[in-house]
């Protein structure tokens, strides 16, 4: 109980402090912080259109947040959600323009599956290298990120290239596009948000209710004890990376199927990396991650409106950075405190 309170309190306090510091910055540049925040909130939640925009922006962030958070729970640092997201969308885009003949009931799950398998496979490479050679996943996933960038630009300028202007793939078949939940003006909220929330439920159930979840957590907390208890560390490291990659691939494929409907060079656009901050703020807890992703999504959406009153939208970057700093600092403080106790 105390622990739960603590894990909620830390990010909430961090957000409050960050908002106060950002307010001082806004004050320093001669604007009224209350008005600035007012327009920020209005821009993010002020009307239906704003809310939809916030939710659209939050959907991939929830999924990359889950991807990274899942990895953390298993003791792996998947810094490659960006690449897995890209490769997932790319693989799905490659096939899904030909799914016109299939009914949506088949085309949609099939496209999602392709994206998730591609993301999972991509991440599993790093998992395999870690399990077999000890190569650190931070290094290998970053390398896989670069490889993804090159493969993607090769595909959209070569085999998949279509139309004029910026490189892009052909549009995927309508039957492979996600159904629209709500439409306000030009804004379309796809069912991607539902998928993201289902993914969070999956992560919760998997980690807390299944034997595989037990094994993955055991490996994450103490690989020696896991091995002692007959749990294969290598198998679980690969599995953890694969599931994390599948979640990142799902982020890519929901963007593809719900928002852009085609693969664009900049599809991931840093959302994979945002997943790291979101997992951190959400304390690797699926529900916490949903809130953290909506927070970041809202800051991003609302900052546009704030910009109209002359406050740079980069203020929210400062806010975001301070939140992350404080949440991470809390971990550092606690780690040092824990170590002290052990030494005694």
């Amino acid at each position: 109980m105390k622990k739960m309170f603590q894990s909620i309190a830390v990010p909430v306090i961090a957000v409050v402090i960050a908002l106060v510091i950002s307010a001082l910055v806004i004050l320093a540049i001669g604007k009224n912080p209350i008005e600035a925040y007012g327009s920020l909130i209005h821009g993010a939640f002020g009307n239906q259109q704003a809310i939809i925009d916030t939710l659209i922006k939050s959907t991939p962030l929830i999924l990359t947040g889950l991807a990274v958070g899942f990895g953390f729970r298993a003791g792996v640092f998947n810094i490659g959600a960006e690449g897995q997201m890209g490769i997932g969308a790319l693989a799905a885009a490659t096939f899904a323009s030909n799914f016109g003949g299939l009914p949506p009931a088949i085309a949609i799950p099939l496209t999602m599956l392709i994206g998730m398998v591609a993301g999972a496979g991509w991440a599993a490479i790093a998992g395999f290298l870690k399990a077999k050679t000890g190569a650190h996943e931070v290094v290998t996933t970053i390398m896989l990120n670069s490889i993804t960038t090159y493969i993607a630009s090769f595909m959209v300028t070569g085999p998949l290239a279509t139309g004029y202007g910026s490189p892009k793939s052909p549009e995927i078949s309508t039957s492979a596009q996600l159904p629209i939940l709500m439409r306000v003006g030009a804004m379309e909220l796809s069912s991607g948000i539902v998928i993201a929330i289902l993914a969070a439920v999956f992560m919760y159930v998997f980690l807390n209710k299944t034997t595989s979840g037990y094994e993955i957590k055991a490996v994450g907390f103490n690989p020696y004890a896991a091995e002692y208890g007959g749990i294969s560390v290598s198998k679980n490291v690969i599995l953890a990376m694969a599931i994390s990659g599948a979640l990142a691939g799902l982020a890519g494929v929901t963007e593809l199927m719900g928002v852009h409907h085609r693969f664009l060079g900049e599809l991931a656009g840093g959302k994979g990396f945002d997943g790291i901050s979101i997992a951190l703020i959400g304390q690797n807890n699926p529900i916490g991650i949903i809130f953290a992703a909506i927070l970041i999504g809202a800051l991003r959406t609302g900052s546009n409106e704030m910009q109209f009153m002359g406050v740079s939208k980069y203020i929210v970057m400062i806010t975001q950075a301070i939140v992350i700093f404080l949440v991470a600092a809390d971990r550092i403080v606690r780690a040092i405190y824990a170590r002290k106790k052990v030494e005694a």
């Binding site: 037990y214 020696y224 004890a225």
Partner: peptide
């Protein structure tokens, strides 16, 4: 090192294996 997973509650530790 081996016998205990410190962040696991007792009911998960007695399960190991």
């Amino acid at each position: 090192k081996y016998a205990l997973i410190k962040p696991f509650p007792a009911y998960y530790n007695v399960l190991l294996g």
